[in-house]
Design a protein around this nucleic acid. Structure first.
Lengths: 117, 117
DNA sequence: CCGTATCCCCGGGGATACTG
DNA sequence: CAGTATCCCCGGGGATACGG
């Protein structure tokens, strides 16, 4: 196989992989929600509602379901009175930690770049 | 300052930073577009249109503008006939490379996790 | 080739109220 | 507290055609 064609195939796979990631992490809220759970290890519904600026309970509920379906988070019901619900990252969800940390660091640098300059 | 409060402040800053990042990288297309340019170093309008599955020219045009405003990419017009336009990452845009690579790798692993399991 | 302009539709998602 | 249910609006974004 010629080299140019090989490279092109390779880049197509990479593009697909990136878009696969973005399909799972789609929308405005997924990353911030995961970040909230990630930073605190365990987090409750109402806590996340406060952490993620601007999200509504309806959206949060929907997004949490999707994240659970994709095996990124786990929902844990504690039988207190009234009921308490904890969310935490699965092992697979924890593989996003690097990305979260990079995005955190990048957000800080970006603010400096745009505002500071 | 007590420790719990300090930690809380710290996490709030982290949450803000993540959301700052997501504001810049918002929507379905920004990351794939940047990825396309990143993988190929330089890339033309119509090439990106092909790389990013499902995007319309209208959207691509809009997104490229926003990325340029945020100093992530640079638009270079070559006076060929007809006109050719190259897009490339700025120095600041290149600081996203780590994140792109992580997302690529993660996309591959995630597919294995969901499909393979 | 690289976009802009227009038209037009539908569903994402906010506000609010309610349940277990 | 942790969601669900309903209503309702508006703007994101596709399709298409056109301009430099």
């Amino acid at each position: 196989m010629e080299c140019a064609k090989f490279e092109s195939q390779e880049h197509k796979k990479e593009m697909m992989a990136v878009q696969d990631s973005m399909d799972v992490l789609n929308g405005k809220w997924k990353i911030p929600i995961i970040s909230s759970i990630c930073f605190y290890s365990k987090r409750r519904f109402s806590d996340i509602l406060n952490d993620v600026a601007g999200i509504s309970n309806k959206m949060l509920s929907k997004e949490l379901k999707e994240l659970e379906i994709n095996k990124l988070i786990r929902r844990i019901v504690l039988d207190t009175q009234p009921v308490t619900v904890q969310y935490e990252l699965t092992e697979h969800g924890k593989t996003l930690q690097t990305i979260i940390n990079n995005l955190t660091e990048w957000g800080i640098q970006h603010r400096k770049e745009i505002v500071g300059k």
